[in-house]
């Protein structure tokens, strides 16, 4: 699974958690906060995505990315190291 596929998973989960954004596609430069997704929703999107790819790790290890692209890259790196 590459970073773009993880971005697709994140995109799908965004649509699940925030129905207003369902069916939209996002660029790697967009951030969830800028899309109006609040912190509770952001964490839910993250947890659901990790569940989908079967990655188990403390959430705090995924703190830091400033946009969806960086988040997908970080998850990809964690997955590769798991």
């Amino acid at each position: 699974m590459d970073s773009d596929q993880i971005l697709d998973l994140l995109t799908a989960e965004i649509g699940e958690v925030v129905p207003d954004l369902a069916g939209r596609s996002f660029t790697r430069a967009e951030s969830m906060a800028e899309l109006g997704i609040d912190s509770i929703e952001r964490s839910e999107i993250l947890i659901n995505t990790l569940e989908k790819i079967g990655l188990v790790l403390p959430l705090v290890q995924l703190h830091g990315p400033r946009n969806l692209g960086e988040l997908a890259d970080l998850i990809h790196a964690k997955l590769a190291a798991a």
Binding site: S39, I40, R42, S43, I47, P58, L59, V60, H63
Partner: peptide, 25 residues
């Protein structure tokens, strides 16, 4: 973890995402 803190007597700083992640963990 540095999620939220009170670095001075009349101020508070933090990161909503990191705080939530630490809480959930």
């Amino acid at each position: 973890v540095m999620d939220t803190c009170r670095p001075g007597p009349d101020t508070e700083a933090g990161d909503a995402d990191l705080s939530l992640m630490a809480y959930l963990d």
